[in-house]
């Protein structure tokens, strides 16, 4: 059997989290699938790497997704703040291109607290903001056993808990996230027995 999901993997709601690394989009998609409700995805209109809805299909129904295309990062943040404070969408994903300063990060955090929605910033590596509740590094991992959804998620910052790393796998049939502990390398506390 698979070990139980550690609580930190269920992102704390009404907070803003951050994720970086090559698997950040998948992290966001899986989070969206697990949170449920409407998703607002805010991305720059200049972004060339567009989301591909048929690819989302294995995670969630694209009908739940709203996409906001913004002309600048300031607009992205304004829209994110508005949506978080409203609390209508359960998850607000923001693609961020330049590091947030303290004020911006704190404003997003306050907005999320007011509205009760969860925020997730897709950042580039090393662009984290101090206000984030947790910061994750997500990367796909090659799996010798033939499964092709294996990922390594690592908490590199956690305001209310410890850091750690997990190998996770997405089950397309049940739409469920499983934590796996690969033989020979047992990363993080989740891999420890008991």
């Amino acid at each position: 059997m698979f070990p139980e999901l550690p609580p930190v993997l269920l992102l704390r709601s009404a907070r803003v989290h951050e994720v970086c690394g090559p698997g950040a989009t998948a992290f966001a998609a899986i989070t969206a699938a697990r949170i449920g409700g409407d998703i607002l995805w805010i991305g720059g209109g200049w972004h060339s790497e567009a989301l591909h809805p048929p690819g989302l299909l294995v995670f969630m129904d694209p009908a739940r997704l709203l996409v906001a295309r913004t002309p600048s990062q300031a607009d992205s943040l304004a829209v994110a703040e508005e949506a978080l404070r409203d609390g209508g969408p359960a998850l607000v994903v923001v693609e961020i291109t330049r590091p947030l300063d303290l004020r911006e990060g704190r404003r997003l955090q306050l907005a999320a607290k007011t509205g009760g929605a969860t925020g997730l910033c897709l950042i580039s590596e090393g662009m984290g903001s101090n206000a984030a509740e947790t910061r994750w590094h997500a990367a796909p991992v090659f799996d010798h056993s033939g499964d092709s959804t294996l990922m390594r998620w690592e908490v590199i910052k956690n305001k209310s808990g410890t850091t750690g790393a997990w190998h996770v796998r997405w089950d397309e049939q049940t739409r469920h996230l499983h934590v796996v502990s690969p033989a020979g390398e047992r990363p993080g506390p989740a891999g420890l027995p008991g």
């Binding site: 989009t25 998948a26 998609a29 060339s48 790497e49 567009a50 989301l51 591909h52 809805p53 048929p54 690819g55 989302l56 299909l57 294995v58 129904d61 694209p62 009908a63």
Partner: peptide
């Protein structure tokens, strides 16, 4: 609704 299931598709397309 009415998304057709296809062979796996990427999440990001460029």
């Amino acid at each position: 609704t009415g998304w057709r299931s296809t062979p796996p598709r990427p999440l990001r397309l460029f």
